[in-house]
Design a protein around this nucleic acid. Sequence first.
DNA 1: TATACTGTAATAGATATAATTACAGTAGAA
DNA 2: TTCTACTGTAATTATATCTATTACAGTATA
Lengths: 137, 137
Amino acid sequence: MNSDFTLAIHSLTLLALQPDRMSTSDAISESAGVHPVRIRKVLSLLKRSGIIKSKEGNGGGFIFALDPGEVSLWEIYKVTSEGTLQPKCPVSNEKCIVGANMHRVLFLIFLGAENHLGEYLKGYTIKEMADLIKQGQ
Amino acid sequence: MNSDFTLAIHSLTLLALQPDRMSTSDAISESAGVHPVRIRKVLSLLKRSGIIKSKEGNGGGFIFALDPGEVSLWEIYKVTSEGTLQPKCPVSNEKCIVGANMHRVLFLIFLGAENHLGEYLKGYTIKEMADLIKQGQ
DNA sequence: TATACTGTAATAGATATAATTACAGTAGAA
DNA sequence: TTCTACTGTAATTATATCTATTACAGTATA
């Protein structure tokens, strides 16, 4: 699974625990253990989809735009990782009945798998993630 | 997703369509578009778990050991790809409440996701894969 | 005993992922 | 108004992962 997904969850959980002030990509990157530029890249996707807001300049950073209790892991998956469950098959032999048709059959099966996974991921919101993190204390 | 999984499905579907004779790694690799050594590696996993049989030497190859209608994609997933849904998180900051606990929380969520995916994959057997491939003709 | 296979390790090559560098643009504060 | 601290994003470099290739031992058949 695409690690942008878990990086987005990590970042959003941090933001949910800091609801009143902006968090910088530097601060988030320090918590997540990745480069700040990567944080900005992933968070720019979440911004485009309206989940968070950002502000440039001195005192700027990132902050939730929605209620963390309304944002599920499925929405985050769709923004950061949709389609990544789909394996990249090599180009198979079109002269063989299996090679010629497997790609299409697998595509449909993995499409179903992704939707099925969606039902599971809808069961977790960022608020719940933040609560689980706090319980871990 | 690990492409060993789809390669295993491809190979097994071929074997299901050739129930009466052995298929060589060369023949399978030609259909799947990958190197024969890789086929042998993946099929050795399936052999170890008793799904197929193999025979060395002249006239040897691979053949189903079970009824293809009894082998589901979930069993193949477990043999070839168990745990690969789990993303590899970078080492995060233990001094931060999120960094210190996120890994454990995500691990449990992805464990649940894998089991949930399992319920979906149990819905497809290799026999059904072979039927879908034949319908595509 | 020649041939056609599997089994597997070791290495090289290709591809994907992530870090780093660089810099333009923006906003607050001295 | 200029310094400082941010985001946004492209380009490049580094690293990790995946795959092909080579090599060869072992096995079964003819």
